[in-house]
Nucleic acid binder design. Sequence first.
RNA 1: UCCUCAGUAGCUCAGUUGGUUAGAGCAUCUGACUGUUAAUCAGAGGGUCGUUGGUUCGAGUCCAACCUGGGGAGCCA
Length: 480
Amino acid sequence: MRQSVEIKKILAEGKIGDTLSVNGWVRTKRASKNVAFINLNDGSTLHNIQVVVDVNKFDREILDQITTGAAIAAEGELVESKGAGQNVELVAGKIHLYGAADPAKYPLQPKKHSLEFLREIAHLRFRTNTFGAITRLRHAMIFAVHKFFNDRGFYNIHTPIITGSDAEGAGEMFRVSILDPKNPPLTEDGKVNFREDFFGKETNLTVSGQLEAELAALAMTKVYTFGPTFRAENSNTKRHLAEFWMIEPEVAFFDIDNNMDLAEEMLKYLVHYALEHCRDDLDFLNKRLQDEEKNLKKEERQMELIEKLNFVLENKFERITYTTAIEVLKNSKSNKKGKFHYPVKEWGMDLQSEHERYLVEKHYKKPVIITDYPRDIKAFYMKQNDDGKTVRGMDVLFPQIGEIIGGSQREEEYDRLYARIQEMGIDEKTLWWFLDTRRFGSVPHSGFGLGFERLMLFVTGMGNIRDVIPFPRTPQNAEF
RNA sequence: UCCUCAGUAGCUCAGUUGGUUAGAGCAUCUGACUGUUAAUCAGAGGGUCGUUGGUUCGAGUCCAACCUGGGGAGCCA
C-alpha cells in the first residue's frame, strides 16, 4: 500500500514544497475546461484537502470516474492555495483510483440530507461531515472515560455479557439459548428444560454490570465497567436503544455524597475534554444546530451547543431530595394550573419525565441531582435510610435528555438486604454470591450507571439516540 | 405497547372544493466555461403517487386495513 499522510496532519503541519501522497474519499469535484478541484476526506478531520488537477495531464477516463464517493490516492506538491477557503492545496502529479462510486447509484450527494434518510444508509453515513464529527467525538469520549478513571486509580472490570442472573430488575432481557426453538426439550411438567441448554440453566444478555462490579469493588476498592448492555423493552423513543453502552463505577468506602461528587466531577471532566480536544467538530455541530434552529420561533430555540456545554462546566449541579422535589412541583404554577398530564398530589408517586423536565429546565435551570427516593419505587439493592421510608438513590437529570445517570449507595447490611429481597419476592438463591459479600467484610459502598449514548446526545447536541451510535438496535430494527 | 403526524422522481418537497398529459430545487447525463469552494450557465432523461381493498363516471386527493418512518407517552440509562 502506498505511503500516505493523514489529511489532519497535512493541514496542521504540512510545509509548502513538500511532496506527499494522500488517500481518501472524494466529497466533491468541480471541473472546468483546464482545471479540476477535488475535495478529499479521510476521516482524520472534519476538513478536506483540496487536490488541484490539470485536466490536460490525466486520462479523461480516470478523471470521469473521480466522482463523489470514489476512493483515490493523490500524489503531488503541497502549495499555497490561490483560492480562498484553504491555506494549502495539493497539486496532483499522480492519481490512483482505488474504487469508483457510480454517481447514478451512490446515495450521498454534496448537499444536506435528512438524518432519517442517513439512518437508512448507516453503512455510508460515516462519510458525511455530521457523522464523521460524531464518530470522532464518540471515540474521544470513550478514551476520556478510561483516562478519567485510570488517572484516579480505578480498575476497569469486564463483567459478563451472558448472565444467569435475572434478578437485576433493570428490565426485560434477551434470552441466550442454543436449544432448537421449534422443538425444545421439555421437562415433565411441559416447560422448556434449560438443563439441556448450553450453560445448563436459563441465560440472558446482561442488563447491567452493577452486581458483578460490586463484587470487584469489595476487594479492589475503586472499579468501573464500560460495556454493552441489552434491554428487550419495547421502547420507541429518541433516547432508548435495545443495545447501548454503559459506564458503571462502583466504589467501596463511599457514601451517597461521595457518589454525587464523583458523578458531577466525571460529567464535567468529559464535557471539558470534548471542548478541549474536539473543537472543530463541536463548532461544526454547533453551526449545524444553529441552522436548524433558524426555522424555529424564538421562544422555542435552545441554548447553543457550546454555550450549553460551558454552562454545565460553570454551574454546580443542584442537589435536592425527592421530598423537596415533590414540594417544589406541588407548589409550581404548572401543577396548580393543571398543566401537568400527571398532577403532583402526594409524596410517594414516581416522577414523570414532564416533572423532571420542569425541575431542570424551568425551576433550577441547571443539572439537578435528586436523592432519597421512596423505597417502594426503587431497586432492592439501594441503601435504606433510617426513616424506614426512603433509600439513598440518586438520579442526575440533564436538560432535554432527562435521566443521564442513575445510581445509589448500596445496602451493605446483610439483614436489611435479605429482608428487602424477601419483600420484593426475588429468589434469593440466584443471588447467593451477592449476599455473600454482605456476610464477609461488608463496607459502605456506592456506584452509578451512566448511559454512554445519553452523554453523547448531550455532548453532540443531537436529538435522536440512533444518531450517536454507529449501528443502532431498536425494536424491529437490527440492520447492518 | 398506546396516542399523533407523515409516506409523490435518487434526495428535499409542492400538488386547490376529487377532473383529463403529476411539478420544482438539488442530484444524474450531455454541452459550455482559465482557480472552483454544495462552482456557474444551457439542454435532456427520470414517477406502479408506501401496499391492498373500497367509494365514484373519474382517486395522488375521500374511506378502511396493513407496512414504514418521525414526534409524544410509558419503561429506563
